[in-house]
Design a protein around this nucleic acid. Structure first.
Length: 444
RNA sequence: GCAGCAGUAGCUCAGUUGGUUAGAGCACUAGUUUGUGGAACUAGGGGUCGGUGGUUCGAAUCCACCCUGCUGUACCA
């Protein structure tokens, strides 16, 4: 905690939280409106669930400690532990279980919402972020899995990305499942460690992963990570299997066939797409950006994926005895927006008001009248919100990037002709009120 | 959590053989004769040098501990 002098409250933000400014928010709005449009086209229902859930409903583990803070923000109300959701999938499973008798089956819904994770933030990763999720619940059809990928691709392109800007990587848990069977790896811990190690291929390469599959690995800071302790023969089998360029599991073969029917080709089979989550049972996918993303110091950062998902046929059953196989995808919107902001060709329009300068408070009626005329015509306009010298008012207009100021002082009011100053060019024109709208529209 | 590095004004940083009232650029405020911005000039505000304790006549500068941040790594249901 940073101490402020005189015991004033800290102006710093908690670790992992950020203020977001207009430019980012406008791009986010743009992305969201594209998403909504496409979700309607694809026939998904819009859903919102609350930020808080009972802790036991969103975690796989019930709180066994005094305070369940394993990665979630929690607090206790009168009687119960509540937690801020850490994703939108668990709330979906809960919603489906709660409304099972009423909802259509299969159930297709999409959701936009903030999620929170109480963990160490990394570059471009925060403890509060906006997610977009689309899921099919209650169908085993691989058409659903395929369509999710096609749909994400359409969303990204609608947002202005080209085919060369992104790729959807796809794999299946069935591949690793079969490997485990074949190699007789039954210990759940060992399986998990293996999956997690394999998930790191893009970052560590096969050499690093093989260390993690074996005894363990020391990273460059000197920290040591314990490995899965597999036999070297098994490690070799795993490497050979996963290095194959085409899928051999039936589900993937079918999904790829459906992609073909959709004429969708911007994907890549990559058996290292494992995803850390334990609950996936079938296809897994990941959305990766292929252009460079830099941090605020201009350095290119390892951006990684902006989202992913897969099939999870058993998750909803956790809430009851329902047969609800499901598949879904989620996108980290803030990360997508952050990346979009860096595309040079990507411009978002920020409308800034024309400023009517205040020369004399007694003439306020005249200013208001001008303002009403302009607003009626749809022009963004404001009367300078304060009392300052003209110079200050100009500085203000300049600072907010106003396109123009209107000078309506004693002389102008007498003649009924305001002066319009273009803040881009610095040129001024004294014109009739009725011409004002047209002149301003030329500038904007 | 573990490991490495770092912590001086709002921001970017300078300031070590420890020594007078701690500096710069940018930003900010006021002004450069009273109706004009983005340039220039002048003046000004702002820091108990991350914190606490210690060594010393004297510490931003040395030591210890703590806190915070960055990076890597782990975890991420």
């Amino acid at each position: 905690m940073k101490k402020e002098k005189n015991n004033k409250p800290s102006k710093e933000l908690p670790l992992g939280f950020v203020d977001r400014q207009e430019k980012e928010l406008l791009i986010r709005d743009f992305v969201i409106s594209n998403i909504k449009e496409i979700m309607i086209k694809y026939g998904f229902q819009y859903l919102e669930t609350p930020s808080f859930e009972y802790t036991e409903s969103i975690g796989k583990f019930l709180p066994d400690a005094e305070r369940p803070d394993q990665g979630v923000f929690s607090f206790k109300d009168e009687n119960n532990w509540l937690s801020l959701r850490y994703d939108l999938t668990a709330p979906l499973a809960r919603y489906v279980a709660k409304n099972y008798l009423e909802i259509p089956k299969p159930f297709k819904r999409y959701q936009l919402g903030t999620v929170w994770r109480n963990e160490k933030p990394g570059p471009g990763r925060f403890r509060e972020f906006l997610q977009f999720d689309a899921d099919f619940v209650g169908t085993k059809s691989l058409q659903a899995d395929a369509e999710l990928c096609v749909m994400i691709s359409e969303i990204l392109e609608k947002c202005g990305l080209k085919k060369t800007d992104y790729i959807i990587k796809i794999s299946s848990r069935k591949i690793t499942e079969e490997l485990f069977k074949k190699l007789n790896i039954n210990d759940n811990n060992q399986r998990l460690t293996t999956l997690r190690a394999l998930d790191k291929i893009d970052r560590l390469g096969w050499d690093g992963v093989k260390e993690l599959l074996g005894a363990g690995r020391k990273d460059k800071s000197g920290d040591f990570t314990k490995g899965a302790n597999l036999k070297s023969q098994d490690i070799q089998t795993i490497e050979e299997t996963l290095k194959k360029k085409s899928p051999e599991s039936e589900d993937l073969i079918e999904i790829l066939k459906i992609f073909k029917d959709y004429n969708f080709s911007n994907f890549e089979f990559d058996p290292s797409i494992i995803r850390g989550l334990e609950y996936y049972t079938g296809a897994t996918f990941e959305v990766n950006l292929k252009f460079d993303v830099t941090n605020n110091k201009g350095q290119v950062i390892q951006f990684g994926s902006i989202g992913g998902g897969g099939r999870y046929d058993n998750l909803v059953n956790n809430f009851g005895n329902y047969d609800a196989p499901a598949t879904g995808i989620s996108i980290g919107l803030d990360r997508l927006v952050y990346a979009l902001m860096q595309k040079k060709e990507f411009k978002i329009k920020q409308s800034k008001p024309v400023v009517i300068c205040v020369f004399d408070k007694k003439a306020m009626k005249e200013y208001i009248s001008l303002q009403m005329i302009l607003r009626k015509a749809g022009v963004s306009v404001e009367i300078y919100p304060g009392e300052s010298k003209l110079k200050k008012q100009m500085e203000y207009a300049n600072k907010i990037k106003s396109p123009a100021v209107i000078l309506y002082g004693e002389n102008e009011i007498k003649s009924g002709k305001p002066t319009l100053r273009n803040l881009g060019s610095g040129k001024e024109k004294t014109i009739e009120v009725k011409e004002l709208v047209n002149e301003i529209k030329k500038i904007i």
